[in-house]
């Protein structure tokens, strides 16, 4: 009683958030039982027949779902790698620019795409990368005489386009955290190296890069949880029937099997498969980030 008397305002303040959290986050979690059912909308969860692990067996037996898992993994891993390496290198190069105005202008330009949605960027890229006289193909043809490249019309090119455009959108934003780390390096390290006659390249190799490694480890580790996140918004707004075999990912697959085909039980199972693996990876990655770099969110 004394506890409640002292803390009731806290509970009251948490109440609104808690209500929404329960309704929109925890109640849907109960719905994952559908993964073990042959769910029929008119029978609801209570009346639909239970089929055990059949949906999961189907997931591993169907060729299309296995292909989708592989696509997702491949695209996501490449995105993680390039979203780490590109900002890392870009930040080091940008740090060499001494003219403040120039550095600021470059930053302003590279941060911008992060804030635009994939609907806007998708609309832009569909036109910009079109093999039918799109801007990029016109430039390539004009400069090198290259035949039009099907950036969005061929499976392998599509994967390439998805990864490059993702990095294009996010690398600037990813630079921020590295720039902050660079600003935190003790200047006396460079002064000492200068005295010893170390060139700028040597300084970069022995001071700059080692100082960035811890933060890179944290960023990289935390990205582990995204290993099955290939980017629904992006793929959904860029893909088409031509690239379905190599460009379809778990999230788009779940959307289509549920909303277009009405296989709710199967779609739930595929989604659950992804959620569980992601959860395990996120927990592991946060543990590691805490152990290696003392990083914590909460």
């Amino acid at each position: 009683m004394r506890y409640l008397k002292r803390t009731w305002p806290f509970h009251l303040m948490l109440l609104p958030a808690l209500v929404f959290l329960i309704v929109f986050n925890y109640v849907p979690m109960g719905g994952i039982v559908m993964a073990f059912q042959d769910y029929k909308p008119w029978l609801h969860i209570s009346g639909s027949p239970w089929i055990g692990l059949d949906n999961f067996r189907l997931l591993f037996e169907r060729d299309d779902s296995m292909q989708v898992i592989w696509n997702t993994f491949l695209i996501a891993v490449l995105k993680i790698v390039f979203n780490l390496v590109t900002p890392f290198a870009f930040a080091i190069l940008l740090n060499e620019v001494r003219q403040r105005f120039l550095s600021r202008s470059i930053q302003t330009m590279v941060y911008l795409p992060h804030f635009l949605s994939w609907v806007i960027l998708g609309g832009i890229l569909l036109e910009f990368l079109s093999s039918d006289g799109g801007f990029v193909n016109r430039m390539l043809h004009g400069a090198f005489g290259i035949k039009p490249i099907p950036f969005l019309g061929d499976g392998d090119w599509f994967r390439f386009t998805v990864i490059v455009s993702e990095v294009w959108k996010e690398f600037g934003y990813g630079t921020i955290v590295f720039l902050a780390a660079l600003a935190g390096i003790n200047p006396s390290l460079y002064e000492a190296a200068e005295m010893d006659g170390a060139s700028r390249w040597k300084q970069t190799l022995h001071i700059t890069i080692p100082s960035l490694i811890p933060i890179a480890v944290v960023v990289g580790t935390l990205a582990l949880g995204n290993i099955l996140n290939a980017g629904f918004d992006q793929i959904f707004n860029l893909y088409n029937a031509l690239v379905m075999d190599k460009g379809d990912i778990i999230d788009t697959f779940v959307y289509r099997t549920a909303i277009s085909d009405g296989q709710f039980g199967f779609a739930t199972a595929v989604g659950l498969f992804k959620s569980v693996i992601s959860m395990v990876l996120i927990v592991i990655s946060y543990r590691l980030a805490y152990k290696w770099a003392n990083y914590r969110v909460f």
Binding site: L14, G31, A258, A267, T268, G271, S278, M279, F298
Partner: peptide, 22 residues
Amino acid sequence: VYSWLFVFTMIFNGGLVPFYIV
């Protein structure tokens, strides 16, 4: 306890279909 209730929703969710049904 509250913190965990909040954080757990960041690392796990029911997925598209159950949410749609809700």
